[in-house]
Amino acid sequence: MYRILVIEDDEVMPKIIERILHKEAYHLDHVVNGKEALQKLEETNYGYDLIITDIMMPYANGFEVLSRVKNRKEGKPIAVIIVSNAGNEDMILEGFKLGADDFLKKPVIPGELLIRVKRLLMRYQ
């Protein structure tokens, strides 16, 4: 079973993501800010296959989490999708520079999110 971490401080979005990905047998964890995200990652020894994260949130922003995940030397690589309403061009580029695998702008199309998640999980297998 794939494990997915959703980092999002918005109230509604995690519910939606959870429902979108519900059809597949994924194990979903949800945290609301950068601090919790980093804690969760440490606790589980980066035991996730995919991370879906927002950019602007309290404690540590999405880029910091992203760079922490992608700069890990050992362990298996983790795919990261950024889902944000801050779709400024510079920010998107920044995200990709840091190694993000995909960038989705809110509002998302459910089918699209689902396909992208599936594809990334397959690629990282």
Partner: peptide, 11 residues
């Protein structure tokens, strides 16, 4: 400084 980096603004 970290908290300054979480300010919500695009640029």
């Amino acid at each position: 400084v970290r908290s300054l980096m979480t300010l919500v603004y695009p640029k």
